[in-house]
Design a protein around this nucleic acid. Structure first.
Lengths: 177, 177
DNA sequence: ACCTTATGAATGAATG
DNA sequence: CATTCATTCATAAGGT
């Protein structure tokens, strides 16, 4: 129900319009903007902290005029670049291959799988490779986890990442105002 | 000649053909980066001004010799850091050495580099060695991957991932001063 | 709307 | 050196 694969191919005449990028290049730009955005937020935060503590130079307040007119992430998204997400059929195939195979697929195998899955949606060899890596790692971890006889010690939570996310979200929220 | 209806905002098939943007889209991205960059610089300037004029020590953050708790990533890591993470300056040096050298550095060379990088943060020879190993391996893999047929564009932007971190850390380093 | 979870991707380290 | 593993970062999807 997500993307309608009905989108017509982009006119190949784009060369004549000048601006052509590889998706890697585009992704790089996107991330760069995102990084800048984060930096700005944090700078603003810091500045605020200083100001409230000092009540100092109010007229120098926050970068007059420039109110971060564009949301980089959203803009980037509107252009369609996101991380790969396996389609239903792709996932099915991946799972079945995973079950029947022993270790990580060889390079050749990866190529084949990628080929096959390509019929069901956009995919690259790297995607496949990563998928198997993650699948294996997470299966293993789950294994270990369930080996802890149901008794106590559910204190496994890692709060480091959580904290980070919250901070980041806060920064972004601040920015949007 | 060609229909201008098709070239408008068409980037749906980027996966297959590489990322194609309209001039407008490209301009927008460029402008955004520029804006953010400018804002960052302004904020940093402002911060510097405040600091030099006041030379105060906020009880919440700015302990001399310590990093501002601004970067959630760094903060999260400092809590229970497991593995080594190169600082911005270290990364910069590593990259430059990598560019100018041919193969894996000799033991002696590794020692020297470690010595040098030690000035910029905690590091061991093993870290350096691993870094070079990984860097080379991944550069190679990337090389292969980029040998995808068709749809190449001429502009060569390079070295994807490391760069973001570099930018980000550079900006933060700026702040620390 | 916010928060959590699942998961794709990046990368330091280990292994052969 | 080539592969693989382990951990973590970042994001898409789903729940409340």
């Amino acid at each position: 129900s997500k993307s309608s694969a009905t989108d017509k191919a982009c006119s190949r005449d784009y060369r004549k319009y000048g601006c052509v990028m590889t998706d890697e290049q585009f992704e790089m730009l996107r991330r760069q903007i995102s990084v800048y955005s984060t930096i700005c937020n944090q700078l603003v935060e810091m500045h605020k902290a200083l100001m409230t503590q000092q009540a100092f130079i109010p007229n120098m307040a926050l970068v007059p005029g420039q109110q971060l007119p564009l949301d980089p992430v959203l803009v980037a998204r509107s252009n369609g670049r996101q991380r790969w997400t396996p389609s239903q059929s792709q996932l099915q195939i991946l799972e079945s291959v995973f079950e029947t195979s022993v270790g990580t697929p060889s390079k050749q195998k990866i190529k084949e799988i990628t080929m096959e899955l390509g019929k069901h949606g956009p995919i690259s060899e790297t995607n496949v490779y990563n998928w198997f890596q993650n699948r294996k790692a997470r299966a293993k971890r789950k294994q270990q986890h369930s080996m802890k006889d149901g008794e106590h010690c559910e204190m496994e939570m890692e709060e480091g990442t959580e904290m980070f996310r919250k901070d980041k979200r806060a920064a972004f929220d601040m920015l949007q105002k």
